[in-house]
């Protein structure tokens, strides 16, 4: 089967991702999936794909793809400057490519992750209902590893054509210099000392360079590590856990399903998209969440993109 494109350079961390593994949570499988779901969903939307079609997640640029067919792709997200044969294309849009042309996603000035979607979605190995690579666990999306130079890619509808589609500027999410993360307090929240509970909302942290797809680690004032948790507790997306040295971390897509440290609650699931684009050093504060407002926003997103039906 001849490829529709070949990865010339994958960059520091390029994986196949979709909307994540909805099943297997009970057996300990990480949800996985695109770190910035909003950017990923828009990439598929621009091509008229199924919302959860497999796409590429490129981290901090350094990526190049040589096309073997006349086709269309969509590029969304942050963290890169996109060119086709050296001509700047911009992002949050579809790009038509000819055989032999080279799409480069160079290192950009803001953000962390860019999505490249392909018409019909990438052909990819799936396991437990998803093509998302969880590199730590060796779950599919090319056997749970990062893409390599020379990796052949195929997608389901290379002949798809559409006029250039761009996301209107007002819909492109900004990449802020500092983040306010809505926090739903829960888990062992009430067992933390009152001084710590105040500090959570009064203090500020920065995104630590040791952050990855498993967790965004926060550097800054230490919290008392709270109560000792005897048995591990099931986690939700965006759970904020306080590790042994008193630093909070926010669990991201490749998180474990249960955790043994004391937890403050969880971050607004939609705010995780913005957090996924925050470079090390970005200032982060927690603000009190209003759960009903978060539910309404989640419901609107699910209806708009056609996602989230029960599994």
């Amino acid at each position: 089967m001849s490829p529709h494109g070949v990865v010339d350079r994958p960059g520091p961390f390029c994986t196949i991702q979709d909307f994540g593994r909805r099943t297997g949570r009970r057996a300990g499988l990480a949800p996985g999936g695109a770190m910035d779901q909003r950017a990923y969903l828009w990439a598929n939307r621009l091509l008229g794909n199924e919302p959860a079609a497999p796409a590429l997640e490129v981290t901090l640029g350094g990526f190049a793809l040589r096309f073997a067919v006349d086709t269309v792709v969509a590029i969304t997200g942050e963290g890169c400057a996109a060119t086709l044969d050296g001509v700047e294309t911009g992002t949050w849009r579809t790009v038509r490519a000819q055989p032999g042309q080279l799409l480069r996603l160079g290192y950009g000035s803001t953000g962390m992750r860019t999505y490249v979607a392909f018409p019909g979605g990438l052909e990819a190995t799936t396991a437990f209902g998803s093509a998302s690579a969880v590199v730590r666990d060796g779950m599919p999306g090319l056997l749970g590893r990062c893409l390599r130079p020379g990796e052949p890619l195929r997608w389901h509808a290379p002949d798809y054509r559409c006029p250039v589609r761009r996301l209107p500027d007002e819909l492109i999410p900004p990449v802020p210099d500092s983040l306010s993360l809505p926090l739903v307090t829960g888990y062992e929240w009430l067992d933390f000392a009152a001084a710590d509970r105040r500090r959570v909302f009064d203090a500020g942290w920065t995104v630590d360079p040791a952050s990855d797809r498993t967790a965004t680690r926060l550097a800054g004032p230490a919290l008392n590590t709270g109560p000792r948790v005897l048995d591990s507790t099931p986690l939700v997306d965006g759970t904020v856990q306080v590790t042994g040295d008193g630093s909070p971390l926010v669990f991201m897509r490749d998180r474990p399903t249960i955790g043994g440290y004391a937890k403050l609650g969880s971050v607004d699931p939609i705010a995780l998209d913005t957090l996924a684009q925050a470079r090390p050093g970005t200032a982060v504060r927690f603000v009190r969440a209003e759960p009903q407002a978060l539910r309404s926003a989640l419901a609107r997103r699910e209806s708009f993109f056609g996602i989230g039906q029960a599994h």
Partner: peptide, 24 residues
């Protein structure tokens, strides 16, 4: 309604549902 995931662990149960039908 619309339970999406459950995780039993030790003496606890986590239930995750849909934002469309969740009334705490």
């Amino acid at each position: 309604p619309d339970v999406r995931a459950t995780i039993p662990a030790f003496n606890r149960l986590l239930i995750e549902s849909s934002p469309h039908s969740w009334d705490p």
